[in-house]
């Protein structure tokens, strides 16, 4: 049995890093060639690699290269962030780069699940609030943000923006259930009962 539950995640504070554009897919977040590594150890080097570096490895202007966003722990994104491939390498890369929460207008389904499974909250705000947030952070990168999952809000510069997070995800993060193996494994007797009554596992 694993140790049990994961850490309790209720609040993430820090500076933010805006990445503009809808439909940012996981191929852009981590190019497929880095999926040939059999561990996640080096993923923190790869977020947006092909946008951040030219063919010779020279850095290009990109929020992830910009010194003014260095040390940011909250990523700001527009709509349908993390679409496409199910590669967990994408949230792993962001997390290992130092991103510990993502605030977006919306997220792709598998990306949301993968992020939750590693304890990386994804919460949503309205389009207008995201515009405000991005503009505020671009104007003042040292701005401190605080994401409060219990109160479902994002506090910054005296302002408060309401955030949406599913109650299941919120609980999962707050109580450590996001590290799910032990919770699922505790039910193994019931799992075997379900298997025993499924016609296709029992000769119909």
């Amino acid at each position: 049995m694993p140790d049990g539950l994961g850490s309790r995640i209720t609040e993430i504070s820090g500076t933010a890093l805006p990445i503009r554009g809808n439909d940012i897919d996981t191929d852009r977040i981590v190019p497929a060639r880095y999926l040939k590594e059999v561990t996640f150890d080096r993923m923190g080097e790869y977020p947006f690699f092909d946008e951040r570096f030219d063919a010779n490895g020279n850095p290009r202007p990109h929020p992830f290269n910009d010194p003014k966003y260095q040390g940011a722990s909250i990523l700001l994104a527009n709509a349908n962030f993390g679409s496409g491939s199910s590669r967990e390498h994408a949230p792993q890369a962001l997390y290992r780069f130092g991103i510990h929460a993502i605030v977006g207008e919306s997220f792709a389904a598998i990306f949301t699940g993968n992020s939750l499974a590693i304890g990386l909250p994804t919460v949503t705000v309205s389009h207008d609030d995201m515009e405000r947030l991005m503009a505020a952070v671009e104007a003042k990168p040292e701005l401190k943000l605080s994401l409060d999952l219990s109160e479902k809000c994002l506090v910054f510069d005296g302002g408060v923006i309401p955030v949406e997070v599913s109650e299941m995800a919120r609980k999962s993060l707050a109580e450590g259930y996001w590290d799910s193996t032990s919770t699922l494994a505790a039910n193994m007797p019931k799992v075997r009962q379900v298997a025993a009554r499924l016609p296709y596992l029992n000769g119909f």
């Binding site: 999926l35 040939k36 059999v38 561990t39 996640f40 199910s86 590669r87 967990e88 109650e167 299941m168 995800a169 609980k171 999962s172 109580e175 259930y177 919770t183 699922l184 039910n187 019931k190 799992v191 379900v194 298997a195 499924l198 296709y200 596992l201």
Partner: peptide, 29 residues
């Protein structure tokens, strides 16, 4: 419904997976 094992403390469903397919890229970790 036929594959529901339990409702977890989070409210999520613990769903039994009848078939698991695995390939080389997303499994080593």
């Amino acid at each position: 419904d036929a594959h529901t094992v339990d409702i977890l403390p989070t409210g999520q469903t613990q769903l039994f997976i009848g078939l698991h397919l695995v390939h080389e890229v997303t499994s080593p970790q």
